[in-house]
Amino acid sequence: MLIPCPVCGQRDAGEFFYRGDATAARPPLEEEAERPWVEYVYARHNPRGEHLEFWQHAHGCRQLLVVRRNTETHEVFEARLVGPFGEGG
């Protein structure tokens, strides 16, 4: 599997660390209730087909990416930066 890193170009998936489901919304910092955090930490959908995932280019530019990918065929559609260098960052 190749991931099109916006910084480094097409790179092998072995250079990246999978960092989890990018659709799981982290509750706001001030949220103290247990339920939303349990949802965020433990509850995961396991979609078949298109999915958004975090991948970090640990053996490259170290940037965190959101990768849009098909979990069934492993086809990678796009990868974009998140964080300070991403859109709106």
Binding site: F17, R19, A22, R26, L29, F54, V82, G83, P84, G89
Partner: peptide, 13 residues
């Protein structure tokens, strides 16, 4: 390091 980088980018941009 990975944990902090993730938090900086994804949780606290």
């Amino acid at each position: 390091m990975l944990h902090l980088e993730f938090l900086a980018a994804a949780a606290f941009p």
